[in-house]
């Protein structure tokens, strides 16, 4: 269910659109009340996930990016048409994995989806 702190972005699989997704990620991280170093991590993670999915997607495909902010946590899914699951041993996956608290990718109905979760690191939040 979507609420006021859910945002859905849809755009063509073109690298020019990465900056858009990145900017929205920063705004959503602020809404999730993440400290700014984690906000910057969210930007980098979206940058990486969207880049990876654009490289794998057929030209002109639609990329859908959904971000949900809750107090202290930001969850992001990035999806596009795809035919194979990403390798878990690439540099890109290592980078993504270091930037987020939880990372998964799944292939279903011809779409590849990355699922990212960033949670506030400090407990006094």
């Amino acid at each position: 269910m979507s609420g006021p702190d859910d945002v859905r972005l849809s755009f063509e699989a073109d690298t020019r659109n990465i900056a858009l997704a990145r900017t929205v990620a920063a705004a959503m991280a602020a809404r999730a009340d993440l400290p700014i170093d984690q906000l910057e991590d969210a930007r980098l993670a979206v940058d990486e996930a969207v880049s990876q999915i654009i490289v794998a997607a057929p030209a002109g495909a639609e990329v859908v990016c959904i971000m949900s902010a809750e107090p202290g946590s930001l969850s992001i899914t990035v999806s596009a048409p795809g035919t194979q699951e990403p390798s878990r041993t690439t540099f890109s996956w290592t980078v993504l994995n270091a930037l987020v608290d939880s990372l998964d990718a799944q292939l279903a109905d011809g779409r590849l989806t990355f699922m990212l979760l960033i949670e506030r690191a400090d407990v006094d939040a």
């Binding site: 009340d33 993440l34 700014i36």
Partner: peptide, 18 residues
């Protein structure tokens, strides 16, 4: 003892979060 949030910076600087 950690990075501030955008909300905390907004309060400290007295400017809107955006």
């Amino acid at each position: 003892q950690r990075s501030p949030t955008v909300g905390e910076l907004s309060a400290a600087l007295n400017v809107p979060e955006d």
